[in-house]
Design a protein around this nucleic acid. Structure first.
Lengths: 295, 295
DNA sequence: TCCATTCTCTGACTTTAGTCAGAGACTTCT
DNA sequence: AGAAGTCTCTGACTAAAGTCAGAGAATGGA
């Protein structure tokens, strides 16, 4: 790693820590300890399971419990057992809690404004653009990719979201039953692998590969959630699947795609895929690609 | 302020807070409470007065005192009365203290590396570029500009640094005695104003304007420290001085500059200054400018 | 010289933030 | 049905972080 990059990151950490970190805690924590405020914020408008809260904030279970008790005493939240599993408890904001949360929300806005007001129009535009870039790239660094059973709830959630998106984007809609690999099962072990990307624990992308005897392996169901686009995640999932193919001794990989999916096509081309004649009769495919693997 | 900018700043605050803030404290605070570590860091290689430390970190005097006592017990710092004012005490790092500080330094590097390693080469370049931009603009937002007596030590420091820089940049050197406004005093009240820019309390830029009877006011001694360039500070100082001219009822302002000072010339042109025939006999001037003020 | 002010320190506190070891209610697996 | 495991909670702690009211030394100005 070159020293100049490291020095730049350090300068950034310092400036941002001073300018935002400090202000942030001061702003949020005026009426209420920071711990409680963070918790209140993290509960969200919909309510959340206690264990999720703990995970998200990385706190001890006893500690969270105590914080919740304190918020409950102040009438800001209610804690009730979940319908289906009465061990798990769900926290929900009361009307007062929502109000308090709205105050935090406002404070966040004020802080943001405070940062922007000292700049002129042009600087402001540049700052927000640069912040968006930093935000995107830092977020990209926290996405994890793991192999998962295609039947795992998170895999199923990804595939569902993918199919929904296809229905929306294809003029004729999308029916999984017409698609050549109707059962996602073949994408999992033993003849393949299915990977899921997570951001803060939430599944935000997936992809699978199937090893088919003498034929080159076949990549399918590549998807990235709208909220996680622009992070280079598609490329990363693709690389993961190709690496698996290489480990399995494959000399090339194949995939096909629909003409509507322009970003995907661009990704495949830029990742070294070449268009080839149709190698299957996938109903929704317009383009067939193959990439040689020299690993 | 538009909502989208605010939303972007908030997203940024959140991501950065999670990714850097949290890691930062964890990294620094492994052997030593965060408070002590921050203090140790802030003392710096040269030593620092206790009250400056307090100011910089925004802490209670009793608290700082206690932290220092703890660091002293561990043999990391020495605290001694200042030469000239024995009420003020100066903290200095011992050899052991410098060693401990070097460890913190290394941790900072490691944290920076950690952030970069999860990215590929291209993303890394983009990230550091964007960070530099954010850093610059956030810093720009904390620079304050105030009117100051030209004889104030900070004004004198700026002018000294300015003259040193001119000596370096002009092939023939620079001698203030040959310059048309030899006494900076005329730039202060009652016939003018002298402004100094500060970043974290340190003077980093200056400029003065002199109202000369029937002639248009005359801007002189505009300077920005190397460490503070790229923040749009020159433009800001200029605007400040022009605003003063407007308040004084002037219809235009004038200035002259040396051909070596290319950034300055570019700034003047882009700020609306037009080159005019020489209106004085400043020894070091090559270009004379005037800008109409319609305020 | 005296008085107001500045600066740092000490003692006596409080509040936050967090850890750890169970206990008890509930689910899931066999 | 019984055992093993999950999830949340309580009690009993500790360490860190910070506040507040003086006390005491030193300084600057009238």
């Amino acid at each position: 790693m070159d020293a100049e990059s490291i020095a730049q990151v350090r300068r950034f950490n310092r400036t941002v820590g001073e300018r935002i970190g400090v202000l942030h805690d001061h702003f949020l924590g005026t009426d209420r300890p920071v711990g409680e405020a963070r918790l209140l914020w993290e509960i969200g408008a919909e309510g959340r399971d206690v264990r999720r809260l703990r995970d998200r904030l990385g706190l001890d279970s006893g500690y969270v419990s105590r914080l919740l008790r304190s918020l409950e005493r102040d009438g800001l939240v209610t804690v009730e057992p979940q319908e289906h599993d009465r061990r798990v408890r769900t926290v929900r904001l009361t009307a007062a809690g929502r109000k308090e949360r709205a105050v935090l929300d406002e404070r966040s806005d004020e802080l943001a404004e405070l940062i922007l007001t000292s700049l002129n129009e042009r600087q402001r535009t540049r700052l927000t653009a640069a912040m968006a870039e930093v935000d995107r790239l830092l977020t990209a660094g926290t996405v994890s990719v793991e192999e998962l059973d295609p039947a795992h709830p998170d895999s199923v959630a990804c595939l569902g979201a993918y199919f929904d998106e296809l229905s929306e984007r294809f003029e004729e809609g999308f029916d999984a039953a017409l698609s050549a690999v109707p059962d996602a099962g073949v994408l999992g072990p033993p003849h393949g692998v299915f990977v899921v990307a997570r951001l803060h624990g939430e599944p935000v992308g997936c992809g699978g590969i199937h090893l088919g005897g003498d034929e080159p392996p076949y990549i399918k169901r590549m998807w990235v959630a709208k909220s996680a686009r622009g992070l280079g995640l598609g490329r990363r999932l693709l690389a993961e699947l190709e690496a698996y193919a290489v480990r399995s001794g494959a000399r090339s990989v194949r995939l096909e795609t629909n003409g509507e999916l322009r970003e995907a096509i661009a990704l495949y081309r830029s990742a070294g895929y070449e268009e080839v004649p149709a190698f299957n009769d996938e109903y929704y495919a317009h383009h067939w690609f193959e990439k040689p693997l020299d690993g």
